Amino acid sequence: MNRVNGTPVLPVISLAQLIARKPEAVAQLHDACVHDGFFYLVEHDLSAELIKRYLSAAQAFFALPESVKQRFGHHRQLGYPRTARGYVAAYGETLHPDAGPDNKQHLDWGIDRCGGAPFSGPSVLPDKHVAPDLNASAYALQDEVMEHLFPNLRRAIATALALPPHAFDAHFRRPTLIQRASYYPANSGTAGKHTDNGFLTVLIQQPLPQPSLRVHTRGEWRDVPCLEGAVLVNLGDLLQRWTNGRLVSTAHQVLHRQPDARVSLAFFIYPDIDASISPIGGGQSFSTAEVMLDNFDSIWVRKQGAGRARQLV
């Protein structure tokens, strides 16, 4: 088990070694995906300066008056579903029904495409006069994640499954993305127990002295501290279903009790919205659209939480 400051944490995996197809790195990835569903990713080539800019710009946005932020709320969005983009105030989202509404704010982006498909945009977001550098840094980091990190990681996962490296590629010609900046207030920020719904999530945590993220892995809840230079990756329900349960989507939550506020940056990545997916090894096919729309309906309409929240106690 890898350790940070004496605290047991998740596996630490090098994307550079995965790209080079180092057997030990591929084996480590396979073990993490089968048993943990969460891991630190290092040597990923995301710009540290760009991450710093994005975190700073997000902090400045969340510090704006609520009346300003509400100008970019769900009721102002133009795409479908409206809940896929824009600003949500504290206690506006419930990730686990028993825990109640989460004490966090968030702002969602996506990949803006015309054509009217679900989860495609356009987005109504604060411009540079309201939130300097926010969109510029957000979209720039989106490009780095979606054009370099994710394709290489996706192919490494295929290799770890003993599939051809490009086995998943046909379903990611125009991938779907929910990109989120979240704000957790000092001493009381929360996000209820849930699983992520997509293929995988890339998560960047603001570096703080004590962990706020908790992950249920290998039979126990573990606090997950920040690791300098690393991003976190966790697998989603769609990938678990795609692999017939061979790879695991892991429950997690946020309990933020530190004296400073916390900002995190997440990229929830899905296949093409019109993709029809046949599980590896057999089973009923399913579509990206039905998976995403059902999850958003569960969160925002049925109020039953995110992912497999209803199965978590």
Rank of each mutant, 00 (worst) to 15 (best):
V34T: 11
Q28V: 04
G37P: 13
C33S: 09
A25V: 00
H44E: 02
L29D: 02
A25P: 00
A48P: 15
F39P: 00
V34H: 06
C33L: 07
Q28L: 13
A48K: 13
V26H: 04
Y40G: 04
A20T: 02
H44L: 04
A25Y: 01
L18I: 08
F39C: 00
L18N: 10
E24Q: 15
D31W: 03
H30I: 10
A27Y: 10
R21S: 12
G37Y: 13
F38K: 01
E43T: 07
H44A: 04
C33P: 04
C33H: 10
C33Q: 09
L46E: 10
A32D: 01
A32L: 01
L50F: 07
L50P: 03
V26W: 05
D31C: 02
E24R: 15
A27Q: 13
E43D: 14
I19T: 14
V26M: 04
C33R: 08
L46M: 11
R21L: 04
L29F: 05
E43W: 05
V26Y: 02
D31N: 05
L41R: 02
E49M: 12
D45M: 06
G37K: 13
H44V: 02
L29E: 02
A20C: 04
F39R: 00
V26T: 11
L41E: 08
L41D: 03
L29S: 06
L18F: 06
K22Q: 15
P23V: 06
A20I: 03
A27W: 09
H30A: 14
V34S: 05
I19V: 15
